[in-house]
Computed example of a mutant assay.
Amino acid sequence: MIASHIREEGNVTVSRLRNIPGIGVDRMGDAADAAQNRNVLRLENLDTDLRPPVEALRSTHQAVDDDNANSYLPFTGQTALRQAVVARMKQSTGLDYDASSECIVSAGGLAGIFNVLLSILEPGDEVVLTDPTYAGLINRVLLAGGVPRFARLIPSADGWRLDVDSLASAVSPRTRAFLIMSPSMPSGFVANAAEWNAIADHCRRADAWLVYDAAMERILFDGRRAIHPAALPDMRARTFTVGSVSKEYRMIGWRVGWIVGPARIMSDVRLVSLSNVVCQVGIGMPGATAALTCTDDGVAQCVAEWQARRDFLLHALRDLPRVRPDGGWSLLIDTSHFGLAPPDASRLLLDKGEVAATPMNGWGPQAQRYLRFVFANEPVARLADIRERIRAAWGV
């Protein structure tokens, strides 16, 4: 018998995958594609129909014919892109970062997060995340040998708020890192100043790292302003900021992200990056650089459009147990309120309502009761009859 393997449903699976169910979005996407019906509302995954910046498209086209873009070098990412990233960090935090020693370009934001986790975790170290949170973040903690601990987000008429008592309970002597996304998937939770200060206080007391997933940092609604945790007292030295062009810049297929952190640990992150994905997408980096440096990146206009879609859904679903997102691309509905487990609600919604939506199984302990609606990929005109579709599917 090989101890490192387990048998599940006739398959041999390595033990590191034992508690990783996947993310569900892939299966829902496959199911929606299999329906072969143009009328299906695609609310299951984080695609968007809004176009990238024109300058990013132009630079990417040019990069296809550029030999310098068809290269492994430099392994930490093109210099112009790293300089653009630290310039953005200066705008966000007021802090100076060195492009050569404190910034690494990654093959997308999630690859960057995984490389950071591999750089800071010993097997059994604990990582505090919010609940709900993106299953891909939880899965990467597990793959890196970490143990997820959860701080509860409280649904309320004021959107989602962090339960600070739950946060305190999640911290232990084994806490090595906090992995926080704001705005967060799938809830749209946006941490306010008091919540960020509570997180930072626990980081300092536990002598832990803060891994800040900034993928949606500027996708904020109702006039909210971004708060960057690295700018809080004594937090620059223990904060990794991981961003990407996927969401804000609508450049999902480019697979370009970045890691910014203190120089004392970035050499380890560089070693992991070289050992894991090796390098980034060469022809994607010039487009990413153009997105970060162009005169008008379109983010403000896109946020206004996404907020209009959110507002429409909040109104159309006002009689259902939905929770207001304050940023990001998605909102959650508590289907247990009317006696449906989210997987059953999802299946009925696709079969009878022609709506693809992902159940939140594996997205945190309390997430199991929610179904996620992504509003980034469908305009209001297409969403107009969503309440009728839900009624046809669920009878509510």
Rank of each mutant, 00 (worst) to 15 (best):
378 E>S: 09
82 R>Y: 02
241 T>H: 05
334 D>C: 01
236 R>L: 10
363 W>E: 01
391 R>T: 11
87 A>Y: 07
232 L>W: 03
348 L>Y: 04
114 F>A: 11
349 L>P: 01
265 I>G: 07
236 R>G: 07
326 D>M: 08
294 C>E: 07
288 A>R: 02
303 V>L: 12
31 A>R: 11
309 R>L: 07
204 R>S: 08
309 R>S: 05
162 L>D: 00
200 A>K: 00
311 D>G: 09
91 Q>Y: 12
334 D>T: 03
2 I>Q: 10
283 I>R: 04
174 R>I: 03
240 F>P: 00
47 D>I: 13
387 R>V: 12
388 E>S: 12
133 T>M: 00
263 A>K: 10
338 F>K: 11
322 R>N: 04
286 P>K: 00
170 A>K: 02
388 E>V: 09
215 A>Q: 12
279 C>F: 13
263 A>D: 08
361 N>T: 10
211 V>Q: 06
369 R>K: 15
337 H>K: 08
208 A>Y: 00
260 V>D: 04
156 S>I: 09
56 A>T: 10
292 L>I: 15
71 S>A: 14
225 R>Q: 13
36 Q>R: 14
104 I>G: 03
47 D>L: 15
47 D>K: 15
113 I>E: 07
224 R>G: 11
64 V>G: 06
357 A>Q: 05
133 T>I: 04
390 I>E: 06
7 R>I: 14
240 F>L: 01
131 D>Y: 03
11 N>R: 14
262 P>S: 13
163 D>P: 01
92 S>A: 12
147 V>S: 05
253 G>H: 02
213 D>T: 08
72 Y>E: 13
269 V>T: 00
364 G>E: 04
105 V>F: 09
278 V>G: 03
199 I>G: 00
311 D>E: 14
234 D>N: 14
347 R>K: 13
130 T>S: 05
216 M>K: 09
57 L>D: 06
325 P>I: 06
373 F>N: 00
196 W>S: 03
323 V>P: 01
214 A>Q: 06
100 S>W: 10
135 A>F: 03
49 D>F: 15
24 G>Y: 04
136 G>M: 06
38 R>L: 15
118 L>Y: 05
191 A>P: 01
36 Q>K: 12
117 L>R: 02
343 P>L: 08
247 K>I: 07
262 P>T: 06
367 A>Y: 00
24 G>S: 07
184 S>E: 10
131 D>F: 00
135 A>G: 10
314 L>I: 05
93 T>K: 13
267 S>D: 15
45 N>G: 15
144 A>Y: 08
74 P>R: 11
384 A>M: 11
326 D>R: 07
6 I>P: 01
303 V>W: 04
287 G>L: 04
358 T>G: 09
309 R>Y: 07
81 L>F: 11
47 D>S: 15
69 A>G: 15
111 A>E: 08
82 R>E: 07
272 V>G: 09
318 R>N: 13
189 F>E: 00
395 G>K: 10
246 S>I: 11
189 F>V: 00
54 V>A: 15
330 S>A: 13
247 K>L: 13
166 S>H: 10
155 P>G: 04
74 P>Y: 12
396 V>H: 14
373 F>L: 13
21 P>F: 07
20 I>C: 08
6 I>M: 11
41 L>E: 01
87 A>E: 11
36 Q>N: 13
14 V>K: 09
194 A>F: 05
284 G>M: 08
251 M>V: 05
327 G>Y: 00
200 A>E: 02
342 P>K: 09
162 L>I: 04
243 G>E: 03
